Computed example of a mutant assay.
Amino acid sequence: MTDLRTWRDRVRRIADFGYSTLLMPDVPTWQPAVGPTLATAAALTDLRVGSWVYAAALREPWSTAWEAHSLSVLTEGRFEMGIGAGRPGIEVELGQPAVPMAERRTRMRETVAALRTFDGSELHTPVVMAVSGPKSQALALEVADAVTFVLSADDDRAETTKRVRDFAGRGDIELAQHVAAVGDRVAPFMAPPSLDTAALRAADSLVILPDDPAAAAEEIERRRAEIGLTYFVIGADFAETLAPMVAKLAGRQ
C-alpha cells in the first residue's frame, strides 16, 4: 500500500476486472488492520472480502470471531473468514510469546465456534481454513466450508494431487489454492521474494501459473477437472495481467 487514493483505485480496478473476492493477509505493521481495511474495500465495490488468513498465533478466539461476525453484518454477507495457525515464528517476530501448534489449533476451533454463536440462525459466515498436517485437516472437515493447503515450493503436481484428492474424499468441502507466483514474478505477502520460479516450473508445482492469460485459464480448468480445485487466490499485482483469464473463465469472452 502506498497512499490511500492509489489503494482505492486498485480496489475498484480489481472489481472491474471481474474478480469475485478481495483478500488481505493478517500481519500487523505490514498494512492497516484487516477489519477496517476490508470494510472500506467492501464499501467501495460489490466485491466479496476476506481474511487470508487470520493467524491464530496472534489472535484470541472471542475477539476474532466478533470482528468476523461484524464484517459479515457490515458487508451484508460478503465477508468470508480465512483462518490458519499462522506461519512459524510470526508471533515471536512481533514480540509476542511463542504459541505451540496445539494451542493454535485450539484457538482456531474456538474462533469458529464463537463465530457460529454470534452469527446465530440468521447468518452464516463462510470459513476458509488453511491446513497442512492431518490434525488441521481433521479440524477443517469438522468446522470449515473451504480449505486451502499450505504447499511447499518443492511439492510437485502428482504429490499435491494425491494429497488434495485424499482429503476431498472425506467430506463435502470447497478446495482453494494459493498461487504465489505468475510467470517469473512472485507475489508480495504470499511467498519469499527469493522463491525460484524456474524450479517451480521444473517441479510442475501448483503454486505457479503462466503469465499468458490463455495458458493460465487452461491450467485453471485442468486443476478443476483433475484435482477438484475451484477457488484460486493470486496476488493483487497480477490482477491486470490475468484479467483476460478471469473474463474467459467467467464466460465474458
Rank of each mutant, 00 (worst) to 15 (best):
T2I: 07
R8V: 08
V11F: 06
R12W: 01
R13A: 05
D16E: 10
Y19P: 01
S20N: 07
S20C: 05
P25Y: 14
D26W: 06
T29V: 10
T29L: 14
T29N: 08
P32H: 10
A33I: 10
A33S: 13
L38N: 00
A39H: 07
A41Q: 06
L47A: 02
G50R: 03
A55C: 13
A55P: 10
A56N: 07
A57P: 05
R59M: 07
P61N: 03
P61S: 03
P61G: 05
W62M: 05
A65T: 11
A65V: 10
T75Q: 02
P88A: 14
E91Y: 06
V99F: 04
M101P: 00
E110I: 00
A113R: 09
T117A: 15
T117S: 13
D119N: 14
E122H: 11
H124V: 03
P126V: 10
P126I: 09
V127Q: 02
M129G: 09
V131T: 09
G133D: 15
P134F: 08
P134Q: 10
Q137W: 04
A138D: 12
A144M: 05
A144E: 09
T148W: 04
L151N: 14
D156C: 12
A158Q: 15
E159M: 15
T160R: 11
V164G: 01
D166A: 15
A168I: 13
A168N: 10
G169C: 02
R170V: 03
E174T: 06
E174D: 14
H178A: 11
V182E: 04
V182H: 01
R185I: 12
V186P: 01
A187C: 11
P192Q: 12
P193D: 08
D196A: 13
T197C: 08
R201G: 08
P213M: 11
E221T: 11
R224P: 04
A225S: 14
E226A: 08
L229I: 07
G235M: 03
A239F: 05
P244W: 00
P244V: 00
M245D: 02
L249F: 06
A250L: 05
Q253D: 11
